[in-house]
Each structure stands twice: as C-alpha cells, then as structure tokens.
C-alpha cells in the first residue's frame, strides 16, 4: 500500500490528471481521505479516472446516481471539497445547490462533494459528459459556488474596510509586537482566497463560452 498526500488547486481537472498519471505508473486508488490517497499496485494504465462534482445534489440524488454507477460498472470514491458553504454544527448550508440539496447534513452530502470515478481502461478517454450541452451544464454547476463565494468576499471586504478595524484586534489578541495587525493578516488571507475564487470563476466562464460556440453546430 502506498500513501500519498495531495491538495489540489483545481480539484476536478487537476485531480483527474494526477490520478491518471498515477495509473500510468501502475497505481490503483484504493482509499480516499480529505488530503490522503492510498494506492495499490496494478498493471500500468489498467484503470482510468474522472472526477465529477455532485455538491449541488441532494442526498437522494447522490444515492440514485451512485446506484446507477454500480449498474454501469463504474467504481466510485466519495471525496470532500470545501468550498462556499456555511457550517452550523453538523448542518451545512449551500445556497447554490439544487432544490433539496441546500441543507446538507453530516450523514448525507457533507464531505461527499466530489465523486472520483474509476473504470477499466479501454484506450478511449473517460468523459463523464459525452455531449456539449451536458458539459456546459456541468461547468455551470461548478461555477455556482464560485459566484456565491465571490459575492461573499465582496461583502466581507466591504465590512472590513468600513467597520471599525480596532474591534478585530481586540477580538483576537493584542499584537503590539507584530508589525501586521490581525485585521491586515485576515484581509490578506481573504484577498488571496478571493483572487483564487475569481480566477477559477473566470476560467470556468471561458470554458463555458468556448463550448457554447460549438453548440450550434455540434451536439
């Protein structure tokens, strides 16, 4: 058993590419954690992988999709993705999800936002969506949490800019010796996360635009 630690900036395409590279080296996924992956040895390129975003689904929808995958002979691993959700104890609120999926509970949709799909390699690319319209729809679903996060960051940014900055310093710790104030560090952190979110949002929008140009001539 081989254990690997990995975090992805691009959890869909990035993770997909990495897993297929591992498969080319003769490694088959056996277990998935939040940041850890366990592999077993197998023949080079015996399996191929694709990553599906299902964070917009309700728990019932997820279960139905999973039994469908069982039927068509595709293996799957559930994987958490932490983006754009509020936690209240064991319940998470996802404003961008479909009907029935907005409130995610710990035994249902939480930590199951991604599905890693695995099937035996047949020499053809493993596409979860095989027509352009479905590809566009899938990208739109993935863009939703980014749009929502972007708005959230705007609001928070506004709050930190206009609210009394001293309140934050008191709330955390008194850092006279620190050259940065706590609110500066926090703003910087929010800023970086905000930029990543915007970049991903723009990337997704560009992909959607490219696909839309194809839709009139190709299915």
């Amino acid at each position: 058993m081989i254990k690997k630690f990995r975090i992805f900036l691009n959890p869909i395409e990035g993770q997909e590419k990495w897993l297929n590279e591992k498969s080319a080296e003769g490694l088959r996924l056996s277990k998935v954690g939040r940041f850890f992956y366990e592999f077993e040895q197998c023949k080079n390129n015996q399996y191929q992988y694709a990553v599906d975003y299902i964070g917009n689904n309700s728990n019932t929808q997820r279960k139905e999709y999973e039994s469908f995958l069982d039927d068509v002979g595709i293996n799957y691993f559930e994987k958490p993705l932490n983006i754009g959700q509020f936690s209240f104890g064991k319940v998470r609120y996802r404003p961008y999800a479909n009907k029935g999926g907005k409130l995610a509970t710990s035994w249902g949709m939480i930590n199951r936002e991604l599905l890693i799909l695995e099937k035996e390699c047949n020499g053809k690319p493993f596409n979860i969506y095989s027509n352009v319209e479905d590809k566009i729809q899938a990208l739109k679903e993935r863009r939703k949490p980014h749009i929502y996060l972007f708005i959230l960051f705007l609001l928070m940014g506004g709050y930190f800019t206009f609210a009394e900055r001293s309140m934050l310093d008191v709330a955390y710790m008194n850092s006279q010796t620190n050259s940065f104030s706590n609110s500066d560090v926090l703003s910087l952190l929010l800023g970086v996360m905000g930029i990543i979110t915007i970049v991903r949002m723009v990337q997704l929008s560009l992909s959607i635009k490219t696909l839309k140009e194809m839709v009139d001539i190709q299915e």
Binding site: F68, V72, S130, A138
Partner: peptide, 26 residues
C-alpha cells in the same frame, strides 16, 4: 437498464458513440 443501453449503443454504432455516465444518467 443503464449498462444495457451503453452496450447497445456502443455495439450498434460500432464504438462511434460512447455515452459518458453523467450524460446517460441525466
């Protein structure tokens, strides 16, 4: 059922059409 449809389509189109699982499910 799902798997049967996938096989039917691959066989009849001689592998030209391969449904992705997400597409077929939807």
């Amino acid at each position: 059922h799902g798997y049967g449809v996938m096989q039917f389509v691959e066989e009849k189109t001689k592998g030209r059409v391969v449904f992705g699982p997400g597409t077929l499910y939807g």
